[in-house]
Simulated scan of single mutants.
Amino acid sequence: MRDLKTLQELVASITDWETFDKMTFKPFVPKLLDATIWQHAPQFYSEEQFAQINQFSKLHLGFELKSKRKDSRKRPISEMPKEEDMPENQTSRKKIKIKHPSPKLPIEFENRVNELNGGDITFLMQKKLYRSDLDTNKNRLSMPRNEIRCDFLTETEIAKLKEREGTSGKGKLVGVEVHVLDPCLREFTLLLKKWDMENTCTLNLSKHWNNVVSTNKFEENQELYIWSFRVEENKLYFLLNKV
């Protein structure tokens, strides 16, 4: 008990990152002290370090630590399967992804958003165009849920994405009408649809996607930055720009 109290007092004395950094070993090797510090000051560790600490705790202390990081998402993106809902044998094999800083929105795009009286600009993802994204028979751009950086849909849009044509509820997906600005700031009207798969889902820009591809002469393996923003709160726009 005295040792635990000493550790807690030590944790309480750490008030800044520099102090903590001087105390840590390099390369990082998790120890009992780290398991204790995590429970009181998780902000001092990266997600990768937490994974190592958690593994140490399970092996040597006999229990699993719970993440205490706050959820930074803006709005729920529907009942899409989340990592905590997946079987343990699948989540344990998932690689930790390090998110790079969001790219800066070009000034000409900012000006266009201002002209439309838009706001809530959000960087969504860096998208690599695959052959399926350029297939005229498919006529859609896929945006896998696990590659989208944040949740950006409203509850109304989430509900709309579930709707199907016909009274039986088994017809085609209705989708949400959205507007897309291409790299030259030309505007297109498309449909956003959600396709559910076994362990995840995909958001797709469909209906007139072929027009966007042919107008811009998009090619396989080309990469795009994708942002979203809103006009008059209920109009959803996407911005596409070449990487």
Rank of each mutant, 00 (worst) to 15 (best):
E177K: 02
K68F: 01
I77L: 06
D182M: 03
Q52K: 08
R112D: 12
P87Y: 06
C184K: 11
S67C: 09
W209C: 00
S168F: 09
H179D: 10
I53Q: 02
V176Q: 01
L32V: 15
T189D: 15
M197W: 01
H100L: 15
K217I: 08
T15E: 11
N204V: 03
Y225E: 09
D71Y: 06
S132R: 05
A159W: 06
Q90H: 11
K170S: 13
K94C: 07
H100G: 08
L141N: 02
Y45G: 03
R2I: 10
K82C: 12
R73E: 14
W38K: 06
I148G: 00
K217R: 07
L203F: 15
F50K: 00
K207R: 11
T167D: 13
T91G: 04
K193C: 00
F238S: 08
Q55A: 13
L7V: 04
E84W: 12
V243L: 15
K172C: 12
L10N: 06
V231A: 11
Q126K: 10
D151E: 10
K74I: 14
K74V: 12
L33V: 12
D85M: 14
I107F: 11
F188T: 01
L203D: 05
N216Y: 04
L129I: 12
R2N: 04
N199C: 04
I148F: 00
E48Q: 13
F229T: 08
I14Y: 00
K104R: 09
K5D: 05
P81R: 07
E220Q: 14
E83Y: 10
L191S: 05
K162L: 05
F28P: 04
L33E: 07
T91P: 06
R186M: 05
S57W: 01
T36D: 06
L190Q: 02
T189S: 13
P144C: 06
Q222S: 04
G119L: 11
N117D: 13
S228G: 02
A41Q: 15
K207T: 13
D196L: 08
V11W: 03
W17K: 14
L191H: 05
N221S: 15
M86A: 13
L33G: 04
V29C: 04
M125N: 05
L33Q: 07
K26V: 10
W38I: 07
K128S: 09
E198M: 07
P42T: 06
Q90M: 15
E9M: 08
A12M: 14
F50C: 01
F218V: 11
R112S: 10
Q49Y: 09
L173T: 13
L32R: 08
T19C: 06
N54R: 05
L191F: 09
I226K: 00
P144G: 02
I53K: 01
D133R: 00
H60R: 10
F20A: 13
R112M: 11
